[in-house]
Design a protein around this nucleic acid. Structure first.
Lengths: 208, 208
DNA sequence: TAGATTGTTAATCGATTAACAATC
DNA sequence: TAGATTGTTAATCGATTAACAATC
């Protein structure tokens, strides 16, 4: 008896990209699309798109393609983004404040429920719809709002301590803007957003 | 006669992470390190680190490990970050302004030489050390300062037009904060930073 | 029906890991 | 010298692609 292996993480990572492209096709008043059209828009082979989707079900029709609304709904189910998630921000510097004002979170079901900083100068000031609170209060807020997702926008030097605190309070997903690698238990997922390392990746290829 | 294949892009992408870890080891007053220690810090196998580095040279000593200062210098050479790069920002919303105030760019040799927006309300206002200029002026500034790197922080809907303009003006590397996939010539490199797709990648794994 | 496009298989391609001789 | 760690090889593992029968 063979057990079906879980879909590869690299495939999971492409689903949000597919979803974004489908949303934009829907906004342009299309009803159906094909793996070819989608691949064209994303610079991905049609075979890869079909293979990726086949991990989760048969969503298309031979000869026709994919119903866009239907595929959007399926992907939103798979990714669990068909609900509202509560999110906290740690650090209220320029990055944290930009995140607090980023409307695409709300548009996609990510509701900000807290922003925290250690700096008493910043505490009680506004940030988007929120008021900056002392970092000490973060665990309480996380538990009260059943927060599973946090964004770290602190200096690199304190990011690991913050991550430990978040994990202790029940956070399972961390979006890390701090320029450092975090060590967390393996059931906690991290995505890194460090513009400097991304720029350094590209400078390799620049010919002057 | 066999031609050595170029190092894989996935390896290039890890070098900045190694560099960052080495910088932090150096700051802690270490002189040497090993592939084991580095792997420990980064959650990467020591074999992978050695293999990755071996694409570029023999940087270590058997029995001893790697001289940190030396390896940092080598990696900075390889990645071409041992010089100053001029960078422009397109879009002066919250994200663009946060980027204009992000000091890690300057610390790593990325010098901001322009920030642009279409909104006449924003033009002539300050952003970090810069003054926001009309987007129409971007091609001139890019050519004057020999800019090869741009960051797009505009709404998704205009990002492709902006990218076309940048490529036309000579930009080879684009860091894209706009939530869309860009189509560019193959000698132009793009890195995407879309927090929403990264969050959606992680929600898949959350158990409630 | 004829044309189009899926889902899937098998082949190819590429990346990671384990193991170890070389050697500091 | 003995212990440690590299650089490299071969084996393993995993991801992508090409091709096509199935079928709408």
């Amino acid at each position: 008896m063979s057990v079906k292996p879980p879909p590869p993480d690299i495939v999971i990572g492409r689903l949000p990209i597919y979803l974004r492209a489908l949303d934009s096709l829907a906004k342009e008043n299309n009803d159906i699309t094909s793996s070819y059209e989608l691949g064209e828009r994303l610079g991905i082979s049609s075979a890869q798109i079909r293979k990726d989707l086949s991990h989760f079900g048969d969503f298309g029709k031979q000869g026709t393609g994919y119903n866009i609304r239907f595929l959007i709904d399926q992907l939103r189910d798979i990714l669990k983004v068909n609900r509202e998630w509560h999110v906290v921000i740690l650090g209220a510097g320029h990055v944290g404040l930009a995140l607090a004002n980023y409307h695409d979170f709300t548009n996609h079901g990510f509701k900000l429920v807290g922003i925290f900083d250690n700096d008493s100068e910043k505490i009680r000031h506004a940030a988007g719809n929120l008021t900056i609170k002392d970092t000490k209060l973060a665990p309480d807020v996380i538990r009260q709002h059943d927060v599973k997702i946090a964004m770290i926008a602190t200096p690199g030097a304190v990011a690991q301590d913050i991550a430990d605190m978040l994990v202790g309070a029940g956070v399972q997903s961390i979006l890390c803007y701090a320029p450092t690698t975090l060590i967390v238990p393996e059931d906690v997922h991290i995505q890194y957003i460090d513009p400097v390392t991304k720029l350094q990746h590209m400078t390799y290829y620049i010919n002057t």
